[in-house]
Design a protein around this nucleic acid. Structure first.
Lengths: 154, 154
DNA sequence: ATCAATGCAAAGGTTTTGCAAAAAT
DNA sequence: ATTTTTGCAAAACCTTTGCATTGAT
């Protein structure tokens, strides 16, 4: 069971198993593919644990990132976001994002098309790649449609 | 001449040509390939214009971004950075970064290997890509050498 | 009993904003 | 003369930290 694995990971690092940590794990585990801010997690957590503090959320996501249970990502809108990743989905190295410039929605996709690029970088500049991040900006299908209609309406 | 083009861009948008704007443009234009924070630009600007305010830097870089003279990039270290790009170097769509996890230096490189990826994204999810950003994390040549030596020393 | 984790509030850092004075058109 | 831009200070914002209390081992 998922939760026991997590408890062992905590113990192995000398960290304690707390209700708050289990709750945040649960919140993240229930939402694969979502990109939650600390505030998002805080609001969800308060439903089950009204006395929880925002600082605890920040400290807990840091623990989860250190344990590679979740990944920290940024879409440059002012706050850090967290998503299930790492060990969980084996997608750690090949998980990318397409961000709609109009509605702000984020679409995830997989791909390992960067392998050749990384090899080239290694060869030419001696840079050893350990991880990568790809963000595509543009317009999603829905927004393209809306924008076309706005165009027609004029 | 470069500066005249910029002045026309400002006028065309109904914006005024000011010493501060010309100064920030000059600072950026003299440093292609560098990734300056607002504070960096502020410090450089004060040398020629001691009375300039940090708020002016922030407002000016926003203008330059809107005019596609510079690009805003983030290496997730807490502050936004700005670099010459856009029209200037025609590299807008194919300019990427390799960030060393040890020394923090950023290496830029060009590449259009994402074209096929973007086409695939467009075909499968109907997402129209207008821009993209690739960040590689890893270790630069120098740091690899240092880390090897540290290993040997033990 | 010991040591880590929590919650709260305060502080931290970057970036934004309000406003009167200054500068550009 | 009008309108934008500036500089300053204050505010806003997300995030981190200090510390006494609570909770886990």
């Amino acid at each position: 069971m998922e939760q026991e694995v997590f408890k062992d990971m905590l113990r192995k690092k000398g960290l304690k198993v707390t209700n708050q940590r289990m709750l945040v794990l649960e919140i993240m585990a229930e939402r694969p593919g979502e990109h939650l801010t600390a505030e998002d997690i805080y609001d969800l957590a308060k439903k089950k644990c009204p006395e929880i503090g925002l600082a605890t959320i920040y400290r807990t996501v840091q623990v989860l990132v250190d344990l590679s249970v979740i990944d920290k990502v940024s879409f440059d809108d002012g706050f850090a976001r967290y998503e299930l990743g790492g060990l969980e989905s084996e997608s750690r190295h090949h998980h990318h994002h397409a961000i709609c410039s109009r509605c702000g929605r984020v679409f995830s996709f997989e791909g390992d098309l960067l392998d050749t690029l990384e090899q080239a970088i290694s060869d030419t500049m001696g840079f050893k790649v350990t991880d990568h991040e790809v963000k595509l900006y543009g317009y999603c299908r829905d927004c393209q449609k809306i924008m076309e209609e706005e165009q027609d309406g004029k």
